[in-house]
Design a protein around this nucleic acid. Structure first.
Length: 479
RNA sequence: CGGGGCGUAGCGCAGCCUGGUAGCGCACCGGCUUUGGGAGCCGGGGGUCGCCGGUUCGAAUCCGGCCGCCCCGACCA
């Protein structure tokens, strides 16, 4: 008998932990704040990785790998950068039994070591743009951690690009932001809002930080990915210049951008329910699970034969479906139903003697729980359709949820009231002053998540001070 | 760093108050019967009771100290 999953209505945070552990996505490591990503979780990460990697390559990026250790002095070259990361650095002071002459920082992000190398590689405008990505682990010594959402070590990809002009860097940062949005919505079925971060929330060392923000089921905001226009900050810190077509020396323009294993937490908190994980089919390691039902060797033979036939159909062609046949005999069908629901397989196919007698199979949708009976003949087509329906159904549901809990407001009291009652996103006017931003957080625990990119221009008054505002910003409680 | 909780079999827990040499459920192994929403019966295997010290004839239990992890808040992708 499986352990009980705490219902979401009872304790959302505990529900999340229960789902992650029981669906075997991850487990706690012996070291505080670290986790083991188990095969179920890693398979999901591999699918995320494979998809994004393809998207990066299609947009002209190439992969490389830079070292885990960075000389401490490198971090210090960009002033804002070191100030931002200092409190969360892991530092190696000893190696091979001896004290190191210079401590090594375990990378919290790789801008500094990458720009130290870019200095060697860039001389001419002909060397630009340089579009590099790396898949890596990074370490940030966080005070409080949470499986997938915030761990001391996490896996991510970090893109680092160098350009000849500000405009080109800006375009790159926005291209990636759109790429992230597309991935979140089309693959993860997780709707996001895109926007610019305020100065206070900006990445340490960036000129502009763009973000995708998603709403979780507890109506809190999850920063799911960021894309930074770094201006010439790192080029200046590392003295990276190039000669333009007119023979003049200029500093290089830069971007960096990343998404992490946090996305897995986002998937869990966007779609899953009290029975366990619900995975978007496009990323699910297993898209269809077969539960053959039989007693005795005669039935077993016939049922498995029919199962295999359908599995073969689904394995064919360009739209190959990732299938698994659970023909274990030590568990009952009922046990298997629960088990596969727990790990989030989008579609289940049941085939038993009753079905064979009637020339049919039973399909069950993970997201709605709905069961339908379809003829054996042409069942593969019905399964493929159900997979698509789950994918689109999840996005539609998540969009409706986000919309339902997004409020356009002009009164601070109203914001406070709703935010306290059940959180959400709030479209409000803000004058742009940091003082108002601070007050917002002090009084509501919510922060400005983004200044929307597609936000329409309208005159209004700051919800805090009444000062002039030309555009609404999105406010919410963040993870 | 502040607040709370927990450390006893792989997992979840009881036992501790009132000291006498460890038990329950699940999981695991074997057998028989089972299989359309977490099967039943019978038989088994498995534990330095977080660590160190003290009290005692005797400590999972009482006393002192230490360590670790989890959750909630401040910091953060």
């Amino acid at each position: 008998m499986a352990e009980r999953i705490t219902p979401r209505s009872e304790d959302y945070a505990q529900w999340y932990i229960d789902v992650v552990l029981q669906a075997r996505l991850a487990d706690y490591a012996p070291v505080k704040g670290c986790m083991i990503i188990r095969p179920n979780g890693y398979a999901l990460w591999e699918n995320i990785q494979r998809t994004l990697d393809g998207m990066f390559k299609e947009t002209g990026h190439v992969n490389a790998y830079f070292p885990l250790f960075i000389p401490e002095s490198y971090l210090k070259k960009e002033e804002e950068h070191i100030e931002g990361f200092k409190p969360e650095l892991a530092v190696v002071t000893h190696g091979g039994g001896k004290k190191l002459e210079e401590p090594l920082v375990v990378r919290p992000t790789s801008e500094t070591i990458i720009w130290a190398m870019f200095k060697k590689w860039i001389q001419s405008y002909r060397d630009l743009p340089l579009l590099i990505n790396q898949w890596a682990n990074v370490v940030r010594w966080e005070m409080r951690t949470r499986l997938f959402i915030r761990t001391l070590e996490f896996l991510w990809q970090e893109g680092h690009t160098a350009h000849a002009t500000y405009e080109e860097a800006e375009e790159e940062a926005l291209t990636i932001l759109e790429l992230y949005k597309g991935f979140a919505e089309e693959w993860m079925a997780m709707p996001v809002i895109t926007g610019r971060k305020t100065e206070r929330e900006r990445f340490a060392g960036a000129v502009t930080t763009y973000t995708i923000e998603a709403m979780m089921q507890d109506r809190r905001a999850l920063q799911a990915g960021t894309s930074h226009n770094l201006g010439q900050n790192f080029a200046k810190a590392f003295d990276v210049t190039f000669q333009n077509e007119r023979g003049e020396l200029e500093y290089v323009w830069a971007t960096s951008w990343g998404v992490s294993t946090r996305l897995i937490g986002g998937i869990v908190m966007t779609h899953s329910d009290d029975k366990g994980l619900v995975l978007p089919p496009k990323l699910a390691p297993t898209q269809v699970v077969f539960v053959p039902i039989f007693k005795g060797d005669d039935e077993k033979g016939r049922v498995l034969e029919a199962t295999e036939a359908l599995r073969k159909d689904l394995g064919k062609g360009r739209a190959r479906v990732r299938c698994h046949v659970d023909d274990r005999e030590e568990h009952t069908p009922g046990w298997k139903f629960n088990e596969w629901e727990l790990v989030g397989v989008p579609v289940r196919v049941e085939i038993g003697p009753r079905d064979l007698a009637q020339g049919q199979v039973v399909l069950a949708r993970r997201d709605t729980g709905e069961k339908t009976t379809v003829p054996q003949e042409g069942a593969a087509k019905a399964v493929r359709k159900m997979i698509r329906d789950v994918q689109s159904g999840l996005l539609k549901k998540a969009r409706a949820f986000q919309k339902e809990h997004t409020h356009t407001l002009d009164e601070f009291e109203k914001l406070k009231e709703i935010n306290e009652a059940h959180a959400g996103f709030f479209n409000v006017h803000w004058c742009g002053a940091e003082g108002c931003e601070d007050r917002l957080q002090e009084e509501t625990k919510a922060t400005i998540r983004a200044i929307p990119l597609d936000g329409k221009q309208e005159n209004g008054r700051c919800i805090l001070c009444g000062g002039d505002s030309k555009q609404r910003v999105v406010v919410g409680k963040a993870y």
